[in-house]
Amino acid sequence: MSPLTRIDHSVILGLIPHGARVLDLGCGDGSLLDKLVRERGVRGTGIEIDDAGVRDCIAKGLPVLQGDIDEGLRDFPDGSIDYVILNQTIQAAKKPVVVLQEMLRVGRKGIVGFPNFAYWRMRWHLLTRGRMPRTDFLHYEWYDTPNIHFCSIRDFDRYCEKTGIVVEKRIFINTGGGGKVYGGGRPNLFAENAVYLLSAPPGGFRKED
């Protein structure tokens, strides 16, 4: 997982301007948030459910809220954050649609990083072995995985199209060779991961009272 961590983190770092207000959903041990604070001078907060992750964030001096990302955004006012990050987490959300709407209600922009389930290695694995694909960063068995909402790049594009969510930027990543940005064609087949910069559809998402 380490090469991916580095490349997706540096991609996300490149999307966020200096001094922004950032919220990292499912921030884990806070390593991305820590980089953002140190290298980008952001005002950042993390949300994390796991005890060990929360303790690690506090040890790094990062503000962190222990809670569930499916509910954790409810308390934030509309537009109170510049960038809401959801990196390698959407596939584990119970209600990804709610999380996406909420992140674009709270954040002026959203950044979503996710594994592309239509990546050719995944397809090949399924085709040749007939078993659920496992990769470096998706190393779970079907019965113990927290990942319950996989999608492909094409699925995610379609979803944004359907809901009017504005895709401002798409960056594709492969982990091979220490991790690099993939700039070639047919990303749905050849990109292992994607990072999307999003904003709300015209009119935006508002808090329901």
């Binding site: 303790r55 503000p63 308390d75 109170s80």
Partner: peptide, 30 residues
């Protein structure tokens, strides 16, 4: 949060009830 104030929140898993704040545990390191 609504006020934009820098806050950290921890909900510590324990079976000791309210008394937990007077007992050694995870809270100490935090």
């Amino acid at each position: 949060l609504v006020n934009g104030i820098d806050a950290t929140y921890c909900e510590i898993e324990t079976r000791f009830g309210h008394d937990a704040f007077l007992l050694p545990g995870e809270m100490d390191t935090i």
